[in-house]
Structures are given as C-alpha cells and as structure tokens.
C-alpha cells in the first residue's frame, strides 16, 4: 500500500520508520557497541608496515572481499525494507547497483574514529597509510575525508538507518522502469526521516547532509581505480575477485 495509495497517513509513515529501523538493526554487520569498545585499538607501526609491504594484488583482493561482504548486508537491508521487494526486479537491481556502495560508505562512518582519523579494518583501527599498497592514496584520503565530515553530524543509529534507506531509494537513478513507484517510496522515506528529525529536534542536520554528487563521485573514483587495476592484473580480477564485486563494479 505504501507504493499505491495517493497519500500516506502518519500511521503508515510510523510503520515504515519502524520497519526501516528494524531492517537496519538486523543487517548492520557490526554492532556499534563493539566498534566503540575497540575505538582506540589501533594497528602498531610494525603491523602497518607489514600491510604496506603486501603486494598490490593481495591488498586489492582483501579490500574487494570486505566491500563485497558489506554489500551483501546492504542487499539484505534492502530486501527487508517495506516496499523494496514490491518494485520490479529491474528496479531492485538498478537501485542496488547504483546505491549499495554508497550505503557502505555512509555505514563506514560508524566504524570511523574522527579523533585519530582511523577506520575499523580487519580487527583494529587503521589510518590511511595502512592502505598504501593499494596504489590509490587520493581515493583513500577522499573516503577518509568523507567519513570525517559525516562523523561530525553525530548520526544516531536511527538516523543512519533512514538516511541510508534514502540513499538507496533514489528515483533519479537512470534505467528505472517504474520511476513513479520508486518516487512514492522515496517520498514516504523522506517524510519518515524528516518526521524523526523533527521529533528529536535534529532538523539542523538536513542542511549539512552530504550532497548526492559527493557519494556518486566517490563510487565513480572507486570504479575508475578498479578499471586501472584490472588493466594491470586482468587474471587476478578474473580468477580471485568475488563474483558479486565484479558484477557490480566492472
């Protein structure tokens, strides 16, 4: 009904909110409490050095596997969201193909310690230097800058849940077949998000949210870097990269 009725009641919006919060809680991959507990567990200099000495191929493969795992949780989040599975299969794929990585990047701010500019990676918090062997310092720094700016908003878990739902349900994605259905779900999610912010006196963050182009640009940079890596190591990508990662990004 959320996709068909002309107007949504406050009760419907409240149901949608509760559904999105529950779907998010069930699929958030890492618990915030655990991330907070490990907040100051950083890699030692020796450990950072050993990551930096890894080959570019090994580091790329590791990161591709972690991104793929994170994306699988986002797919599950989408599937549990009211209305998503009522969209046609083409549009489900379009939205996930365009938005899954963007959601992963937003979710990353939970695993980011802005006080020492580190991110949770393979059991501890890592600085950008740890990723040196990937050969994409500019992209890594842009992702860290993005996580830093998002952290300054001090998102609550509920805010992340609704914000990421809105990152995913975007009726402006190209190749949608039933744009109006996506628009309707997006409008309801926007109402739900704004209603929650108003209730918590947090409307101020609306003006500080990252522009949609920012996330799109980070994802574009990631795909460009993958393209360069693939030119250098086509066999590695073909043989050892996760199939879902290749399907989405190359």
């Amino acid at each position: 009904s959320l996709l068909e009725s002309p107007n949504s009641s406050l009760t419907e919006i409240e149901h949608l909110t509760q559904n999105v919060l529950k779907s998010y809680r069930e699929t958030c991959q890492l618990r915030l409490e655990d991330l907070q507990l490990l907040r100051w567990e950083t890699f030692t200099k020796e450990e950072v050095g050993s990551y930096q000495k890894k080959s570019m191929e090994e580091m790329w493969e590791r990161c591709a596997c972690h991104i793929t795992e994170a994306i699988q949780y986002v797919v599950e989040f989408a599937k549990r969201m009211s209305g998503f599975m009522d969209l046609c299969q083409n549009d489900q794929i379009v939205l996930l193909k365009a938005g899954a990585m963007e959601v992963v990047l937003v979710r990353m701010c939970r695993a980011f310690n802005s006080e020492n500019r580190t991110v949770f990676f393979e059991g501890k918090y890592a600085s950008p230097e740890l990723f040196k062997s990937l050969g994409c310092n500019e992209l890594i720094n842009s992702i860290f800058d993005f996580a830093h700016s998002l952290s300054s908003l001090h998102f609550s878990e509920n805010e992340i849940a609704l914000f990421t739902a809105l990152v995913l349900i975007n009726s402006n994605r190209p190749w949608l077949q039933e744009k109006s259905k996506v628009e309707r779900l997006q409008n309801n999610l926007e109402l739900a998000f704004k209603h929650m912010l108003r209730k918590n006196h947090r409307e101020g963050i609306l003006a500080k949210l990252p522009p949609k182009g920012k996330l799109r640009n980070l994802c574009y940079q990631h795909m460009e870097k993958l393209r360069s890596f693939r030119q250098m190591y086509p066999i590695i990508v073909h043989a050892v990269f996760p199939p879902l990662y290749k399907e989405l990004f190359s």
Binding site: M85, Q89, W175
Partner: peptide, 17 residues
Amino acid sequence: LKEKHKILHRLLQDSSS
C-alpha cells in the same frame, strides 16, 4: 539487466537469507 546481474538477482530471489 537481470542477465548481466545474475548473482545480485539470485541474492534478491533467495528467501532463506
């Protein structure tokens, strides 16, 4: 699109997850 995204399509169809 479904043809080009078989894994994503399968994940979406999988009701056991």
